[in-house]
């Protein structure tokens, strides 16, 4: 679509939507949100980009094949369950690591978080692949 308004708005909105999707993903552990919905939001940003500039440019902007993003996510999700091997617990047991930082921020790193990041990436990869495929089929 060749519209200046859409092009300019997309550039602005892209960063906002992507940032919001990351926020939603991290929020998901204790409040509404999570990897799935965050991934959907991020995918919508990329779909918006491809609507404004075309699927070819969207693929270029991603830099890696969209399915590789999903592969990365799948790998994170699968490997997050393996960490419990070092703690002697069964597959997928949640492990928490809360580092003591001398600041007022409470930081909790955990394998469920890694799993959620994996889900986030899988959803982005899968949705973007389907959407770009459909968009290219129309041309």
């Amino acid at each position: 679509m060749n519209s200046v308004i859409l092009h300019t708005a997309t550039r602005l909105l892209m960063s906002l939507i992507l940032m919001f999707s990351v926020y939603i993903m991290f929020r998901g552990h204790n409040e509404p949100g999570g990897g799935f919905i965050g991934g959907l939001i991020a995918a919508s940003a990329i779909v918006l980009y491809s609507a404004a500039f075309g699927a070819t440019w969207a693929r270029q902007a991603l830099r890696v094949p969209s399915m590789s993003i999903a592969g990365c996510g799948l790998f994170f999700a699968a490997i997050s369950g393996v960490f419990s091997a070092f703690a002697g617990s069964p597959f997928l047991t949640g492990l928490w690591w809360i580092p003591h930082l001398n600041i007022e921020v409470h930081l909790a790193l955990s394998t469920p978080l890694l799993f959620d990041i994996g889900v986030y990436l899988v959803v982005i990869g899968a949705i973007v692949t389907i959407a770009l495929e459909m968009e290219e089929a129309e041309d």
């Binding site: 999903a70 592969g71 799948l74």
Partner: peptide, 24 residues
């Protein structure tokens, strides 16, 4: 022994993920 039980699930998942990473 615990870990062999998830072997039939874990190994193909990891292989699929690595194959996706090597997409091209």
């Amino acid at each position: 022994m615990n870990w062999l039980l998830v072997w039939p699930i874990l190994i193909p998942v990891l292989t699929a993920a690595l194959c996706l990473l090597a997409w091209n």
